[in-house]
Design a protein around this nucleic acid. Structure first.
Lengths: 102, 102
DNA sequence: CGTGTAAGGAATTCTGACACG
DNA sequence: CGTGTAAGGAATTCTGACACG
């Protein structure tokens, strides 16, 4: 399940280079709950490649004039829809399974 | 061709955690030409996930009592064999192709 | 040879704040 | 709201060297 993509290993400086975003922006998006780095024991932020993709996506939306709370709302909706689809899929599978059984 | 696995983004501290090797060892293996990190403009080392795998492989060989120069020699042999196989494969493909043509 | 360590300095990162708009 | 910046401090990393074996 977890792979290199999810490993939190990238410092904010490298992150800044990878995304083209200033460190200030990256920290701010964290403050606005758009991204969640890990921390070293000393407090230094660590990001994953998935976070790189997230930030690029966020950057694009910001350029389109979207506000951070809107982006956050969109993310939440996506999550909810995903859960919903999964629950429905499981429901259908269970139904089909029970039909065969009984 | 290149993916997350080859991106040099990991600092030596994280590298040390990921591999369980001391920073001293990691720097020494570089000195012995077993690993080649990139550098930031400021001189800080940056490693890739492929480097993580390399280091784990090196660590295993060191535990088996192998010396750094032997490990290095093994790597070179592997490279040469790989090139040889590829050349031979290309040769056979070319031969087959020419047979059809002429 | 391979690795630990103390040393001094430089690069990197952190937080909270002020500024502007 | 979103972002730049200067400030002071702390965490991280760097190199060259000495030590031991």
């Amino acid at each position: 399940m977890s792979s290199y993509k999810d490993k939190k290993v990238i410092t904010i400086g490298v992150m800044s280079e990878l995304t083209g975003l200033s460190e200030r922006k990256i920290r701010y998006y964290e403050e606005r709950k758009l991204i969640y780095p890990d921390r070293t024991s000393g407090g230094t932020r660590k990001y994953s490649f998935l976070d790189v993709e997230r930030l690029l996506d966020i950057a694009e939306k910001m350029e389109d004039g979207m506000q951070t709370f809107e982006i956050r709302r969109m993310e939440q909706k996506k999550m909810k829809n995903k859960e919903l689809r999964e629950r429905m899929l499981r429901g259908q599978l269970n139904a089909a399974f029970n039909m065969r059984k009984g």
